[in-house]
């Protein structure tokens, strides 16, 4: 899927952008298809796709309760509301289904295929919604009672979490911070400069700056892969010891 997106973006860019020195071929009354535009398209596409990938990883790893852990000290009431909302979403979804089914069995909620008009259906759906809302308000009172009964607002709240900031976390944080700093210094000094049009040119810098900067960048990006490879190796090793 992402590969497809990558190819499409790569090919589409030269179609819109005819500039560039190296003409690969011409089409439609001498409109140029240039190598520079193609490569520019490829690098833009790679950037977009990798951003997608990183966000997918972020989504997978950072579940809601981890955000809560990170932000709970700073915005305590906001995070609490957020946790409560997370409980309510599946609850309300389920309730709507129950209401619809309950009303369907007493002939109050016909479906489209059973010959009900659109106007009728909208009216019925509104009734379901109003039923949900009154139910939700009614129950919110109980929830509020239960919160008060467990001392909510009796004094400053502390925050419980099941995560720990251990030695490995510290090592990893130092590792990431250092590498990020190196990469940033490289970027500021212009190592990431690249220009495609009219012809390709890259930053003209000392080779060592280049090597150090990009090595650091690779090390930073590959950190999760290092961890999982290490895990596999350690696992194998320990198993072979038994």
């Amino acid at each position: 899927m992402l590969l497809l997106l990558f190819l499409m973006l790569t090919i589409v860019n030269p179609l819109f952008n005819p500039r560039g020195n190296t003409v690969l071929f011409e089409y439609f009354n001498a409109r140029a298809f240039t190598l520079e535009a193609l490569l520019y398209g490829a690098s833009t596409a790679a950037m977009l796709v990798s951003a997608f990938l990183w966000f997918a990883c972020l989504n997978e790893i950072m579940s809601a309760d981890k955000y809560m852990y990170v932000f709970s000290e700073m915005f305590s009431s906001v995070t609490l509301i957020f946790t409560m909302a997370l409980r309510l979403v599946p609850l309300y979804k389920n309730k709507i289904k129950q209401i619809v089914q309950a009303r369907r069995c007493i002939g109050m909620f016909p479906s489209m295929s059973k010959g009900a008009t659109k106007k009728d259906l909208v009216a019925k759906a509104c009734t379901v919604l109003s039923c949900l809302v009154s139910w939700a308000f009614e129950n919110a009172i109980t929830t509020a009672d239960s919160m008060k009964s467990r001392g909510f607002s009796s004094c400053r709240r502390t925050h419980f979490n099941i995560y720990r900031f251990d030695t490995q976390s510290i090592i990893f944080m130092v590792y990431e911070t250092l590498l990020t700093a190196v990469v940033l210094i490289g970027a500021v000094s212009g190592a990431t400069y690249a220009s495609f049009i009219p012809s390709m040119s890259f930053a003209q810098l000392d080779k060592t700056v280049y090597i150090i900067g990009f090595a650091a960048y690779i090390m930073l990006l590959a950190a999760p892969s290092f961890l999982s490879v290490k895990e596999i190796v350690v696992w194998r090793y320990l198993r072979s010891k038994i």
């Binding site: 809601a64 309760d65 946790t83 409980r87 929830t143 919160m147 467990r150 001392g151 709240r157 419980f160």
Partner: peptide, 23 residues
């Protein structure tokens, strides 16, 4: 309706959090 939070472990600690207990 008595439950407040979305996770079991968080719910268990809700009262203690309110009372300002240490981690």
């Amino acid at each position: 309706n008595q439950t407040v939070t979305d996770k079991v472990w968080h719910e268990l600690a809700f009262g203690l959090e309110s009372l300002g207990c240490a981690q």
